[in-house]
């Protein structure tokens, strides 16, 4: 059943697909409460389905050895609590691109445009992925606020 959750190039899941994925993960967790992958998939599906409050509740009971600080911070960001999101991001020991990406968005929400600009400049310099165009658009938005 987990194979259905496997992403493929032509698969563009809807919120409904993620609702189904949550159900599959719940089934798997009922069979094996220690299934860390099912738990991880459930958290991702909850975020993608927009169930941010429920997701934070789930993460409070994270018994697994999984680093889900990014997902936790993202939920707080979407629930319009950028300060809490920032607090979680500040606690990340080895931040990756995704953490800095979210930090930039949190700084934008906090209207800290100069810091936001610096984070985007660093991400754009150091990253080479399929989101370069979106980042440059975001950087333009930040620059417009600085002008």
């Amino acid at each position: 059943e987990l194979a259905a959750l496997r992403p493929s190039a032509d698969f563009d899941p809807t919120a409904d697909d993620y609702e189904k994925a949550i159900k599959v993960c719940n089934k798997l967790l009922n069979l094996d409460a220690h299934d860390a992958t099912a738990y991880h998939c459930k958290i991702v599906a909850m975020v993608q389905a927009g169930k941010f409050q429920d997701c934070i509740k789930q993460l409070e009971n994270n018994k697994f050895d999984l680093d889900l600080q990014f997902e936790d911070a993202y939920c707080h960001y979407r629930l319009n609590d950028p300060l809490k999101a920032m607090k979680i991001l500040d606690g990340v020991i080895n931040p990756q691109v995704k953490h800095n990406e979210l930090r930039a968005q949190v700084l934008y929400r906090l209207e800290q445009y100069e810091n936001c600009f610096t984070v985007y400049r660093d991400i754009i310099r150091s990253s080479d992925d399929k989101y370069e165009t979106e980042r440059k658009t975001n950087l333009s938005a930040v620059t417009a606020q600085l002008a």
């Binding site: 995704k98 968005q105 989101y131 980042r135 975001n138």
Partner: peptide, 21 residues
């Protein structure tokens, strides 16, 4: 309001399931 993408959402990704399949 200027266009601003939620790129962080794209980083919320399913874990690798290869070891499970």
């Amino acid at each position: 309001k200027p266009l601003f993408y939620d790129v962080a959402l794209y980083h919320v990704e399913m874990p690798s399931l290869d070891h499970k399949l």
